[in-house]
Design a protein around this nucleic acid. Structure first.
Length: 183
DNA sequence: CCCTGATTCGC
DNA sequence: GCGAATCAGG
């Protein structure tokens, strides 16, 4: 992917609005946060909310070069959910948020007790945060569980149990479920 | 550990 | 110019 005018403009906009480099990278898609930061610097629009620059920091010589030129870069930022509309709640969330947990069997009483500090918004979710929706998507109080989940597993340990319970009879699904519980 | 931005430098 | 690797800090 290259830095087209449009992408640069979007970058400027989001950066100015205070989005983090990783969030911007996610919205742009096809770039890592490093790429975003690098571009930001080249554009000369760094130092967003900084006071005085300390300057001078004795950089290290930097180890030997990777030398891994061609082929797959480093498999980083994969736009798993790129191009999120970044809307406020309802609409966007309802559309593609997470696989709405339909029938939810009585698992454990304790469930929706997520510390506010760990709650996630559509922009905070990543490969290792629980994407279990909590509350009414059309409500302002809506949020995603956000607790830790193993990379690749959509939910935290608890919500995995809830989500995959109905089919626990089949040994087929042991892949996901088992892995999810292992941890 | 997760994350943030800053910097260097091979490409 | 680009961005991975690295650093420094929360």
């Amino acid at each position: 992917m290259s830095w087209t005018n449009e992408r640069v403009e979007l970058l400027k906009k989001l950066w100015t609005e205070g989005h983090s480099a990783s969030q911007i990278a996610a919205e742009l898609g096809g770039v890592t946060r490093n790429a975003v930061i690098g571009k930001v610097h080249r554009l000369g629009l760094s130092g967003r909310a900084k006071t005085a620059a300390p300057v001078a920091k004795t950089r290290r010589p930097r180890a030997a070069a990777p030398a891994a030129s061609s082929g797959q870069p480093a498999a980083t930022a994969r736009p798993a959910s790129a191009g999120q509309p970044r809307v406020s709640g309802a609409t966007a969330l309802k559309a593609d948020a997470s696989p709405a947990p339909m029938a939810r069997p009585a698992v454990e009483p304790m469930a929706e007790l997520v510390p506010i500090s760990e709650r996630a918004t559509i922009l905070t979710l990543n490969e290792r945060t629980c994407k279990w929706p909590v509350g009414d998507p059309s409500s302002e109080d809506f949020y995603f569980c956000g607790r830790h989940s193993d990379p690749g597993v959509p939910y935290c340990a608890h919500h995995c149990k809830v989500a995959y319970q109905p089919v626990s009879d089949r040994r087929r699904n042991e892949r996901k479920v088992a892995n999810a519980r292992a941890s």
